[in-house]
């Protein structure tokens, strides 16, 4: 049974891959060399961490906050049967994100949509910049 006519080492695809990796769009600042890829943004009061983890339920992802770092852990399972092609990564993964600001541990919020994990970490009150009004005399 042939479902996939390409050779095992699909050279054109490999080349495309290589060029995709080398000339990444300028919006993406870092190359992905760790799994899972993360995006980190912040505003005055929150830190937002997004991560691409397709095919994993939120219950199977372990999110821990300790010592100012966020740890995302999980396991990607694979199906059974005879594989014609396997490109999706499987197995245990872990990614650590260092947070250099004090955070409010009680109000951390995580949700998952379309394979994207979103973690919102509120900064602790003392880390939020505040305007101090100066009275002129």
């Amino acid at each position: 049974m042939v479902i996939d006519f390409s050779s095992f080492y699909n050279l054109p695809r490999q080349l495309d891959r290589f060029f995709d990796e080398t000339w990444r769009p300028s919006t993406i600042s870092q190359r992905r060399n760790a799994y899972p890829p993360v995006n980190i943004s912040e505003d005055k009061s929150n830190i937002y961490v997004f991560s691409e983890i397709p095919g994993v339920d939120i219950e199977d992802i372990d999110i821990t906050l300790s010592d100012g770092s966020l740890v995302i852990k999980g396991n990607r399972k694979h199906g059974t049967g005879s594989y014609y092609r396997q490109e999706r990564p499987t197995g245990l993964f872990q990614r650590v994100v260092n947070l250099n600001v004090p955070i409010n541990l009680d109000k951390v919020n995580a949700k998952m949509k379309d394979g994207i994990l979103e973690v919102v970490i509120p900064k602790a009150d003392e880390a939020i910049p505040r305007k101090i009004s100066i009275k002129a005399e």
Binding site: T27, I28, Q30, R31, N39, I40, S41, E42, E52
Partner: peptide, 13 residues
Amino acid sequence: RMEGVSNIHLEFG
């Protein structure tokens, strides 16, 4: 898209 945030580190888009 999130308004009013600064992106610190981006790996996908």
